[in-house]
Amino acid sequence: MKFLTITIDYLPMPGGVARYIDTFCEAFGSSMHVVADIGDVQTSVCDKTFSVEYRQFMQQKWPRWMGAVHELAKRDVDLIFTHHVLPLGIACLMNKRRTNTEYVVVLHGMDFDLATRNMWKRWITRQVLREARAVVTNTHALAQRVERFVHVEPLVVHPQPYVQAAKSISSNTFSIVSVGRLVERKGIQRVLNALTLIPHLHDQLHYSILGGDGPFKQELERMIIDLGMEDLVTLTVDPTDEQIQYAYKTSQLFVLPTVTTALDREGFGIVYHEAAQFGIPSIASNIPGVDEAVINGQTGILVNSDQELIDAMTTLFHNEELRKTLGDNAREHVRTSRAMIEDLKQNLGL
């Protein structure tokens, strides 16, 4: 069978969605072909088990997705995947009505929120989801919301780690790490503020922040200076995969207490699973979706407030046995979640 993924978000673009799409497609091997319109982002040759084609198919004028309709009409495939219910889901729907080519819609969280914010979007989103061969969500929490919205039962496939696991490196310094784009909602500023309240531990720990350049970078740089943490904190902007991997290898605790805003929120958090591969427990915010990446009391600790964040960091700093138990459980949690994509393929009869 021949599969096609059509997308407007793909590597080397930053962010969890681009990486989710990549690992998702990897599961289909050479049967998958990706067509990506990522605008002016600099691309490079991809070394993948599947093929990737970068081309501009979105129209400059409205409706921009009509260009995707023309692109799909040229493709002779058995099944189409899209990770953008709007606008590419509309193109998949129109293509199905013209060519009978079935499609699968994968939802990530914020995309579903945006697709249901007004009457017109809710109407067309329901059409797209109802006519899909399958609807996939990245969390069970999102699956429940989608089912209530459209009375279709989604299949769930958790995001898989992008950075490959490697053997950890021991260190005399207690290393805390955060990985995520430098935006306010990642909650890195909460970690910096928490560190100011545990000064008695500063000579025994180091905090590494690795993130793609974002609008909050200058604020974080300012905070590090204003709080007098230049020797305690390292900020690496636009890190390579090798730098991220090394940070995981040398760390004992992953902390990313994300913040929900009206315009954005964490849907799942691939980075929690990446850290888990290295046997690192996580501290995260207690919000739907994230609570599937980090299982409270089993693979890490979920927090509801800044004080709980401080308490969790302090507890895991002092309790090596608990860190190891949570870390071992986290590694196993990631291993078992890999079966989800195979369950999806079986449900689709592939």
Rank of each mutant, 00 (worst) to 15 (best):
D226N: 09
N118V: 04
V128N: 07
Y10M: 11
T314G: 00
I301Q: 02
T314A: 00
P87C: 08
N172P: 15
L302T: 08
L232N: 05
V45Y: 01
K249R: 14
E308K: 00
L72V: 08
K249P: 04
G15P: 10
S30E: 10
A293V: 01
R64D: 07
A27G: 12
T49R: 14
N329D: 02
W62K: 11
I280W: 06
Q204Y: 14
E321V: 05
T23V: 13
T139V: 08
E147V: 05
M94V: 10
L309C: 00
V136M: 14
R55T: 15
H140E: 09
P281N: 03
S251I: 01
G228S: 11
H158I: 07
V156C: 15
A18W: 11
V135D: 02
E221R: 03
A134E: 11
D306P: 08
D241W: 01
G228K: 09
I280Y: 03
E266Q: 06
H83M: 03
H200D: 02
S171R: 11
M32N: 12
Q160I: 09
I310E: 00
Y10P: 09
H206K: 14
L201C: 05
L232T: 03
H202R: 11
R323Q: 04
H151L: 08
I176A: 10
M110R: 14
F3R: 14
A134T: 08
I225F: 00
G29E: 05
L210H: 05
K96N: 11
I90T: 11
L205V: 02
G269E: 11
Q204P: 07
L195E: 05
K61W: 14
H140D: 06
A91G: 05
I280D: 03
H202L: 03
D47T: 12
A27F: 09
L88P: 04
W65Y: 15
V106P: 03
D76P: 00
T125F: 10
R133Y: 05
R126L: 02
L253Y: 07
F254Y: 08
N296G: 12
L88I: 07
V191Q: 03
A262D: 14
Q56C: 14
R335D: 12
T325F: 01
R98I: 12
G109I: 10
L182K: 13
P159L: 14
V183I: 15
Q56E: 15
Q42H: 01
T325N: 02
A166Q: 03
V35R: 03
E230M: 08
K48E: 09
P63K: 14
W62F: 12
G29I: 08
I169V: 15
F149Q: 06
A339F: 10
T173S: 07
S168Q: 07
N319Q: 06
P239N: 06
V183S: 12
W62Q: 13
R338E: 12
L302F: 03
G39A: 07
V35D: 01
M32Q: 15
L155H: 11
V105T: 01
M313E: 01
T250V: 08
D328R: 02
W123C: 01
A134S: 14
A339C: 14
R145M: 00
E230C: 04
A312W: 05
T139D: 11
R190L: 12
P161K: 06
L344A: 14
I270V: 15
K2S: 10
E320C: 02
D328S: 00
P288W: 08
R323N: 02
A247H: 04
